[in-house]
Computed example of a mutant assay.
Amino acid sequence: MHDFDHLDRIEILEYLDSLTVSGACVAFHGDADGCIAAALLETILKENIADFYCVSSEELNLETLIDWFENQKVSNLITLDINVGSSKGALQKLCGIVKGTVLVIDDHLGDVGRPPDNCRIIQLLPDRDAQETRNQIRPAVYFCDFLSQAPSKERSGMQAFLALAGLFGEGVTHLFDIASFHANQRVKNLAREFGRGITAFCLLNSTSIAAESFVRSIVQLVKEEEGGESIQAASERVRQSKLFEVLRNSSKEISCVVQDQVGKSKHDCLWIAAKDYNVYKIYLDTKYNVVNLVASEARNQIGEGVVVSIQIKEDNTAIELRRARNINSPNLVELLQHLKSEYFVARGGHPMAAGATIKKEYTENVLEDLRLEILKT
Rank of each mutant, 00 (worst) to 15 (best):
S255K: 10
I78H: 03
A234T: 00
F4L: 03
I254L: 12
R114V: 15
I254G: 09
V141C: 13
H2C: 09
P151L: 00
Y362L: 01
Q92E: 15
A324Y: 07
A32F: 02
R322L: 00
R299T: 12
Q337D: 13
A298P: 13
L103Q: 01
D315G: 01
S341G: 11
N76H: 13
A346H: 10
V98G: 06
F201P: 02
L204A: 08
S56M: 13
E59L: 00
S250T: 08
L19S: 11
Q261N: 09
A27Y: 08
L243V: 10
G100R: 02
F28G: 05
Q301A: 11
C119K: 00
V306R: 08
K99M: 14
N48A: 08
G166N: 01
V238D: 04
S87D: 12
I254M: 08
K360E: 03
N48C: 13
T43M: 08
G30F: 01
I272G: 14
F214V: 05
P116L: 01
L16D: 12
L62H: 12
A37V: 06
M158Y: 06
Q92N: 15
A150E: 03
G228H: 06
N118W: 07
K376R: 15
F201D: 04
N300Y: 07
I97P: 09
L13E: 06
N316A: 09
L370F: 15
I178N: 14
N61F: 03
E373V: 00
G355R: 06
D33S: 13
S18V: 01
N118Y: 03
L124D: 12
K360F: 07
A318W: 04
E236I: 01
Q240T: 12
D145S: 13
V291G: 10
L293C: 07
I218N: 11
N135G: 10
S148E: 03
Y277W: 11
D8C: 07
L321H: 09
R114F: 09
V308Y: 14
R138I: 01
F69A: 07
E297A: 10
L41S: 06
N326E: 09
S57K: 05
A24C: 10
V345H: 14
V84M: 09
V55D: 08
G348P: 15
I66E: 04
N76M: 03
D67H: 06
V308D: 10
K287G: 15
C35E: 06
N249E: 15
L125S: 12
S156G: 14
W68P: 11
N61W: 06
C144A: 14
I358A: 03
S206W: 03
Q159G: 09
S87T: 10
I358S: 05
S156P: 10
S22I: 00
Y15C: 14
V215M: 01
E236H: 13
P151E: 14
G157E: 03
N61L: 05
S75F: 01
G96M: 00
Q261T: 00
G303M: 01
M352K: 12
L7N: 10
K188F: 04
C35V: 12
A356T: 06
R120Q: 14
A295Y: 00
I209R: 06
S180H: 15
N71M: 03
A191V: 00
